[in-house]
Amino acid sequence: MKSYSTLFLLLLVTCFATAQTDEEISKDPDLQKKAIEKAKNKPNIIPVTENIFMLKGMGGNIAVQHGKEGVLMVDTQFERTSESVLGIIEKETENTPQFIVNTHLHGDHTGGNKNYKQTGATVFSHQNVKDAMLAALYNEAEEKVMKEIELMEEAAKDNDKEAQKALERNRDRAKTKLEQPLDLDTSNIPSISFDNNLTIFYNDEEIKLIYLANAHTNGDVMVHFTKSNVIHTGDAFVNGLYPYIDRSNSGTYKGYQSAINTILQTANQNTQIIPGHGALATKADVAETKKMLEFIYEKVTFHFMNDKTEDQVAQMRDITKFYDEKGYGDGFISTEKFLRSVYKAVQKNEGRKKARNEQKEKRYKEMQKRVKKEKDGKN
């Protein structure tokens, strides 16, 4: 066990404020563990404007807008970070969040929803986010029932006839669960959803929730605090990192490029931009990402058209050298993963063009053979 003085310094540095005294914590391993865990989950506060601050830590970046009407929060990180995040918000604003906007469905941005809903918050998201989160709950519940049925069927094989009949009855009862409304825990699901764009007027500010179709996912929204000149982009822009194009949730490379253009069109030179991940950004940082996306797409397209395979392109560090040296590949998406993602996008977007070019080349070669044959025949 750590000495009292060492533990005291640890707790002082991590700012673990609880009802327990330092001496009580020093004598209780469980409290020590909780202190360390809470410190690890505690995000950093980055001031943005007088009434908006950013919380950067585990998971996606959070924006907090506060004023005379209350607190609006953008994204909720993970469930396990909720206590630390809520503590900071209460300390900084003397309030708990009244409204929350989810920029997309991923758990590092929505994981804490239910904890804030329990304090009275109303969560907004695009309809596709709500649909996808509900679908995941249904799939999980159905898989659980199917697993029960499989176990029953497996057990029935090694039992006598009476036991088999009993197991079959239980199996049949389990199957009926799939035909009835499933009992789902929807506490993490957004309460209010919208199809396209939505405007909220809160704390004397017009806040625009702008849909970015098929970018990082099919449910991305950016949050524009118009009066404060602040934008939270969600993962439709990550600062100084290679982006994740979530193809399983209908994200596309072209959609991501379009989202970057929308952010650039919305921002001006003084706009402060809170990215989904990475440091607080400016319009120039978004422009740098646009340049990176275009450059790498162009290079991968060249190699694709010249019959290079995905595995070959994934190892071409000359393509990404400039951005790798800036640390773009040090995040969730490595250089190799990003190159593979771009290759798949190029394959989908440029594949028909390549096929047409190959057909033209084939017809041209066949024509040359016919011409040569005719010339040889005349001679």
Results as ranks from 00 to 15, higher is better:
residue 4 Y to T: 10
residue 7 L to Q: 05
residue 7 L to D: 04
residue 8 F to K: 15
residue 10 L to P: 07
residue 11 L to R: 12
residue 13 V to N: 13
residue 20 Q to C: 11
residue 21 T to A: 01
residue 23 E to L: 13
residue 31 L to M: 06
residue 40 K to I: 15
residue 50 E to I: 08
residue 54 M to F: 05
residue 56 K to V: 13
residue 57 G to R: 02
residue 58 M to Q: 14
residue 60 G to H: 00
residue 68 K to F: 04
residue 68 K to C: 06
residue 69 E to W: 01
residue 71 V to C: 04
residue 74 V to G: 05
residue 82 S to N: 02
residue 84 S to E: 09
residue 91 K to I: 03
residue 96 T to E: 13
residue 118 Q to S: 15
residue 122 T to D: 10
residue 124 F to W: 10
residue 128 N to C: 10
residue 128 N to K: 12
residue 130 K to Y: 09
residue 143 E to T: 12
residue 146 M to N: 10
residue 147 K to M: 08
residue 159 N to E: 15
residue 161 K to N: 10
residue 163 A to C: 04
residue 166 A to F: 08
residue 171 R to K: 15
residue 172 D to E: 13
residue 172 D to G: 02
residue 174 A to H: 06
residue 174 A to C: 09
residue 186 T to W: 07
residue 188 N to I: 05
residue 191 S to P: 07
residue 191 S to W: 03
residue 193 S to K: 05
residue 207 I to V: 01
residue 210 I to W: 04
residue 211 Y to G: 05
residue 215 A to Q: 03
residue 215 A to E: 00
residue 225 F to M: 01
residue 228 S to Y: 03
residue 228 S to F: 06
residue 233 T to P: 01
residue 239 N to P: 04
residue 241 L to N: 05
residue 241 L to T: 00
residue 252 T to M: 07
residue 260 I to K: 05
residue 267 A to Y: 01
residue 271 T to I: 03
residue 276 G to L: 09
residue 279 A to C: 08
residue 282 T to F: 03
residue 284 A to N: 10
residue 285 D to E: 11
residue 288 E to M: 12
residue 302 F to H: 14
residue 302 F to Q: 15
residue 303 H to F: 14
residue 303 H to A: 09
residue 305 M to N: 11
residue 312 Q to F: 07
residue 313 V to D: 02
residue 314 A to N: 03
residue 317 R to S: 14
residue 319 I to L: 06
residue 319 I to P: 00
residue 320 T to K: 00
residue 322 F to E: 15
residue 324 D to M: 00
residue 330 D to S: 10
residue 332 F to H: 11
residue 339 L to Q: 01
residue 352 R to D: 13
residue 353 K to N: 13
residue 353 K to L: 13
residue 358 E to M: 11
residue 361 E to D: 10
residue 361 E to M: 13
residue 369 K to C: 06
residue 374 E to Y: 12
residue 375 K to H: 12
residue 378 K to C: 06
